[in-house]
Design a protein around this nucleic acid. Structure first.
Lengths: 107, 107
DNA sequence: GCGCTTCATCGTAGTAATACGATAAACGCG
DNA sequence: CGCGTTTATCGTATTACTACGATGAAGCGC
């Protein structure tokens, strides 16, 4: 019943501000599934950038891949640029940098 | 939470061997909860190393903290050394290093 | 032995995550 | 406009996670 609309208009380039432990947990959780790690891998290696490309590389249904893409997008790890009928997803490398940074700051 | 902290971080054991994407996902998932991030933080900062110490720092029941400790232990991020009736937990820094390494190797 | 401390585990309830097929929405092209 | 392509979303089933109190196990000291 809780219909979240607070992240439907997040512009590219903004990462949600959170306490360090929550921010780290949030980023880590997004990468806490093998399929999402693979997706980020594929995007970084530029083996295609569309949802369809990714579906071909993973043993998952298109709808499932789309859900994983949404998780990564909501976390700010990737963003999508509409290109006609398709959407080109890209990794926001600074998000990965931020994750490593937060890990280093842990101690 | 006294002299135990001085000798409780001699690193035994190794980390489970997995495909890179699964290994990264596994480590990330373990840090994918704010409470577990806080636990690792506390252990790294040596604000006590026993389960009881951690319970005092978190708004969680002892049984819940114990469960989180188990998750971190099963992932190899922390380990515990029995010291009489108590158990001294320590971060396996190598695991955190491995996580950062896997993140860097993503591209 | 008994009590005390410390931590793990059990049982369980509520919530979140994961997966799928089906369907809808958005776009370009003819 | 209607069609094909691409992606998102809906509905739903199953599984996993998170949390708690209660109970159990292991150690120390008396």
């Amino acid at each position: 019943m809780k219909r979240q609309t607070d992240n439907c208009c997040t512009p590219p380039g903004t990462i949600r501000k959170l306490a360090p432990d929550k921010e780290l947990a949030r980023l880590a959780k997004a990468l806490g599934h093998p399929a999402r790690v693979r997706i980020v891998q594929l995007l970084l290696r530029r083996e295609g950038c569309m949802c369809g490309d990714i579906v071909e590389h993973l043993p998952l249904a298109q709808s499932t891949v789309s859900q994983h893409l949404k998780v990564l997008k909501d976390t700010g790890i990737i963003y999508g640029e509409t290109e006609g009928p398709r959407i080109c997803y890209c990794v926001r490398r600074e998000a990965l940098r931020r994750l490593k940074e937060l890990l280093s700051e842990l101690a």
